[in-house]
Design a protein around this nucleic acid. Structure first.
Lengths: 358, 358
DNA sequence: TTGTACGCGTTATCAA
DNA sequence: TTGATAACGCGTACAA
């Protein structure tokens, strides 16, 4: 017979001399149990190592679990399209557990769009939210409403720690900048050189988290003796994509420029294509984020030196998994889950693309 | 009600005008079903998209699934201790599905040890094997016996393609060498320089796969114009750990040495400690494998420049998962699963250690 | 407050 | 060859 070794609720009931119903009420603290029965069951639980069978638990559930995934409308943004793909995958993985995941998309621009969409989602009275915020100031009122209604939520992409979510998924952004700095290899150069930090495609007032990356980047060179002949200049490039050209060319023409660090996954393609035709191309290291199709094109060509992978697809998958673990299985989830800072070079790119875990 | 949308076996039975028993027999090709009933059920299956509920399936199973994990005795080998930890983790993850995983350890040295242990394991007539071979010649007869008995097996660590396992888990070793070469950064140096490849702690006659790494390493410099001032020398260092010192010192004293590539995860500690006190230390790049405790110590110190992570812990986990998916859930598994070539530097090490997925 | 009985989707057994 | 039915472990409604 199966699972002979495993202890079931039925076994606990027999050992404590009560019924399975009573054991269930003790385990889930549902009340309506006498002090006498409580102590008997607790005594048994102390002595054995009961591991509930999550499989049976979800089979026997009557209730559906409704989860809302609230993200910006991906439109043509490759980063958020990856996120959306992750949500779809999680959806498939959890259906058999009676969990539904409904994506709700808000607009980047319309100032009250996120709040309106969130309100709409709330009317379906869901059990939990997974939120990928891009504008801090807009996300805060939405999330405060969730707290009022006691609806648990998980954040990914950008954290807002003071709202203490059930869990945050992302990366250590400061360290991400440190890593980018190391990969520049600038301290090994003997001549004076300039590094440019480009914050592309985001309003730096809203996307404050990008500044953490810059701080990490600068910090690396400030440490010990790595900074003697390195100068760092930073630029906010928040214009429409067709207007980017002039700004980037100005940067490229800085005398002594030896590296460009783009802190987002945006517009790396246009930047790389300008660099490709630049006379000093082989002397300039270009580092950016994420394995988006256009980025890979230039990584393969050797124009982009390294990409740091933020795993946009995996972030919502793990977020939803944490939410389900908490809600359905009553498991404890860590308050914060930082993904590894994956270094993608031309030479290990294929190994990442072929790997099914990504 | 739950899963209203999902089609159950019961629904198929109703639509085909037969009983659930018949549908089950058709789905699993158990035979004992009339041609008439068969076509009726198949007609229904063509029109709908039946997705079996794996949760219910494993609950309803009577039979235990016994899996044998056959690996070398880890003793004090940190690499195989990681593998063993992975086996234990997989064990815990699958118990509720009625799957048991039993580790069987064979000795490195005793020439018939692997075969004897495998024979012992076979007597418990298991349903599948997960095997981490280190000696090609010893593994072949063991695996051929499995094929005779029709017992499916998964290989990890080192592949033996001609035995076509259900699945192989590992890395692209040639590309791993290419990556190591790139990370050396030797082509950027202006002066002549020498790179040393060290095959440590393995009999190169048996561990032929190490030569793939060397081939990849050399190939990188042979391509295009990367080789003009780079010379590569390779060494087999297969002596007891205390006797390694002399050989390594000889290598370190090669004039113009600018990099050492150790193709295994073994003895990187002793090598790094010798490099640490060497006068030309800052001019020599050291690259090796795996996030073993001793390796991390020297990575943090900056003596080891990069580690490439082979994910020894994850390999058996994925292997067991593939075996279960095939045996229990009748899912198709890919014949080969290559892990990403993860680059670990001092600056992203913490992010890997903190990440729960590793 | 307590215990019993049923349902979840699938597999396996057994009588017809 | 078929179909009815009892498990599997847990949650839950309901009766006592």
């Amino acid at each position: 017979l199966k699972n002979q070794a495993n202890i079931r609720i039925k076994d606990i009931a027999r050992m404590a001399g009560v019924s399975v119903g009573t054991v269930d009420r003790v385990l889930h603290e549902r009340g309506r149990v006498s002090w006498e029965a409580l102590t008997k069951v607790q005594a048994v639980l102390k002595n054995i190592d009961y591991k509930p069978n999550f499989i049976a638990r979800s089979l026997g559930r009557a209730k559906q679990l409704r989860i809302i995934a609230l993200i910006p409308n991906p439109e043509l943004d490759a980063y958020w399209l990856e996120v959306q793909a992750g949500i779809q995958q999680a959806r498939g993985e959890w259906t058999h557990y009676g969990v539904t995941v409904a994506p709700y998309l808000y607009q980047h621009d319309g100032k009250d769009a996120m709040e309106a969409v969130a309100r709409e989602a709330l009317e379906t009275n869901p059990d939990g939210f997974v939120i990928g915020p891009i504008f801090q100031t807009l996300a805060v009122p939405v999330i405060e409403k969730l707290r009022d209604k006691q609806i648990p939520f998980v954040l990914f992409n950008a954290n807002i720690p003071e709202l203490n979510p059930l869990n945050f998924i992302g990366q250590d952004l400061f360290q991400s900048g440190v890593l980018a700095a190391r990969l520049m290899g600038a301290e090994k150069r003997t001549e004076e050189n300039i590094l440019a930090v480009l914050h592309v495609g985001e309003d730096i007032q809203e996307a404050v988290y990008l500044l953490d990356k810059e701080r990490g980047f600068r910090d690396y060179f400030n440490k010990t003796n790595k900074s003697h002949h390195v100068t760092i200049q930073s630029y906010n490039v928040n214009v429409p994509i067709h207007a980017i050209r002039d700004q980037v060319e100005n940067v490229l023409n800085i005398p002594g420029l030896s590296g460009i660090y783009v802190t987002t996954s945006k517009a790396l393609g246009p930047i790389a294509s300008l660099l490709e035709t630049h006379p000093r191309r082989s002397e300039i290291t270009l580092i950016g984020y994420d394995m988006l199709e256009e980025n890979l094109k230039y990584l393969k060509k050797g124009i982009i030196t390294y990409l740091i992978n933020q795993n946009p697809k995996r972030q919502p998958i793990v977020g939803i998994s944490h939410l389900v673990n908490s809600l359905l299985f009553k498991k404890n989830v860590p308050p914060i889950e930082l993904f590894p800072l994956e270094i993608i070079a031309k030479e290990n790119l294929e190994s990442y693309l072929a790997s099914s875990i990504h």
